[in-house]
């Protein structure tokens, strides 16, 4: 599904990713862990197509197609979803309108009929239950006045609506209390299927208690320095990142 080969990425002339290789197959959940500044968020953002990240070499194929050539909105419509580390506020734009546009852009892309207001509201209510979103939130402007936890839930809610084939969660657990963490994890788990994959970027192991990954990769100084099964996360929790740092 996703195939990253020898990817080098710079931001403002500074090299952040230095030769990333990663294969994600349908149905797999990959966790990417690593200390601050190792390039985790850069990887998430470059996959989503954020402009200021410059790919200096390497390739990324998504379903066999060159991902890096595509505009961010086309990547999204092809089924790539990024749950933002810092969800953005858009004053004056009601969540409902924003989401309906997003869902219908996806549907148009797939050659499906656009949803009417009524159909959309029905779908929205369904998905809202899934992540325990307060109905009031959808009447507000996009992320405006949301608490940190509400913002993160809102990301998972959007993911549930858009049903991506590859979800990238960029530190979705940061700033969440344990209940919110469980809700977020439940939302992600509910979407797991043999066709859908996820990349979970996280600093801490605790999220992985709830979203159990197939693989854990450790990213350090722009390179994946270690790959193993879910037990790697526990080992890392126990030994701390210094263990990685001294090895490399």
């Amino acid at each position: 599904m996703l195939s990253i080969k020898d990817l080098y990425v710079s931001v403002e002339g500074m090299e952040i990713l230095k030769g990333i290789n990663l294969e994600v197959k349908p149905g797999e959940v990959h966790a990417i862990m690593g200390p601050n500044g190792s390039g985790k968020s850069t990887l998430a953002n470059v996959l989503a197509g954020k402009e200021e990240y410059e790919v200096t070499s390497g390739s990324v194929l998504f379903d066999g197609e060159d991902l890096l050539e595509k505009a961010p909105e086309d990547r999204a419509k092809d089924g790539l979803f990024l749950s933002f580390q810092y969800p953005v506020e858009i004053p004056g734009v009601p969540m409902v309108n924003f989401l309906k546009s997003a869902v219908n852009e996806h549907r148009k892309h797939k050659g499906e009929k656009e949803l009417t207001a009524g159909e959309f509201l029905k779908l929205m209510r369904e998905k809202m239950d899934m992540v325990d979103m307060h109905p009031n939130l959808t009447n507000r402007s996009v992320n405006e006045g949301f608490s940190g936890g509400e913002k993160k839930k809102n990301e998972i809610f959007q993911m549930a609506l858009l049903e991506p084939r590859l979800a990238i969660l960029d530190e979705t657990d940061s700033g969440l209390d344990i209940d919110a963490l469980k809700t977020v994890a439940n939302g992600v788990n509910a979407l797991r299927s043999p066709e859908r994959s996820a990349i979970v970027v996280t600093h801490y192991q605790r999220l992985l208690d709830y979203i159990v990954p197939d693989f854990v990769h450790i990213l350090y100084k722009g390179k994946i320095v270690k790959t193993a099964g879910k037990e790697l996360a526990l080992e890392l929790e126990e030994k701390g990142y210094d263990w990685i740092k001294t090895d490399n």
Binding site: G49, F98, S101, A102
Partner: peptide, 29 residues
């Protein structure tokens, strides 16, 4: 905000449409 536009893009909304939304939101009052 370029961040606002990128956020819309990431949800499948192209830039022209995103600007339309953001500006209309700004002028809503």
């Amino acid at each position: 905000g370029e961040d606002q536009i990128f956020y819309c893009n990431q949800r499948g909304i192209d830039t022209e449409m995103a600007i339309g939304m953001i500006v209309n939101g700004y002028a809503k009052e």
